[in-house]
Amino acid sequence: MFNNPPLAFLHAGTALYVLGFGFALAAAARGREHDRPIFYALIIPAFLAQSTGLYLRGLETHSLPVGNAFELVQALAWVTVFLQLILRATLQLRLLGLFAAGLAAGLGVGSLFLPSAQAQAAGVAGAGNPWIEFHVALAVFSYGVFGLLAVSALMYLIQRHGLERKRFTGIFRLLPSLAELDALNRQLLLVGAWALSVAVGLGVLDWIEQPGGVSVAKLVVTIGVWVGYLVVAWLRWRNRLVARSYAWSCVGMFALAVFSLWPVSRAHHDNASMPAPPAPRAPSPSSQTASG
């Protein structure tokens, strides 16, 4: 691991996320809010270590570091924590940091067990084409938003469970209100759905240009996740999916999205192994290669 500095940074980041999450969870279990300076003294270095690791992986391939499942999951955790750090400054929602750190720790630890965890950086197919890179970046960003949405939906479910079961102590009294979490859930779904729609739109333009450049598995899974989130958003807008069922849908959809990364990354890997195109093309949406 130490012969591979990017990997070492990513492992260090994951370890710090686990520590930060454990520290905050221990306090919450005792009904206390965690000591924020200590918590962020663990989470910010974790985020920086992860940023460095991903940056170094990107340098190796001169592309976004989302070339295999391991990198995709790490990038997903990175976006989730990044969004939480931004939201923290504006929303001040209690325990959102704890839950986001939990997701980052879970994703980070889970990524270590992926077959691609020890693989060299793969790079994104079509790297160098700004539209492809934009498409990939937007897709990863939207998945990060959905990650935070799942976190927030889980907090909603826990708070709701406490109120239904008349639990008043421990973590229940620290969580934000149902109304605050529901409002955040709606906003995150809207942002994520828009970002993913644009990413899918760019991907579709590429697919029209080069129908064989994207595997069917990737196409089906990506469109499936996108349609799934659109359906959830539409049902929420029509008030047909509300409260607990809406929160469960957000958690379930994110689990589905994470599992969908496997065929998506396989497609990446396959495409990255393909011979490079004969000549660079103009950076327009109609001239993309296969992408994430």
Binding site: G31, Q159, L163, F168, F172, R173, P176, S177, L178, E180
Partner: peptide, 23 residues
């Protein structure tokens, strides 16, 4: 310490519960 934590009257418990639901 926990000496000031948690509502201890019917009114304040009601308020805390309402706050947990509606902010």
């Amino acid at each position: 310490t926990a000496i000031g934590r948690g509502a201890v009257s019917i009114g304040s418990v009601s308020v805390e519960l309402a706050t947990r639901m509606f902010g």
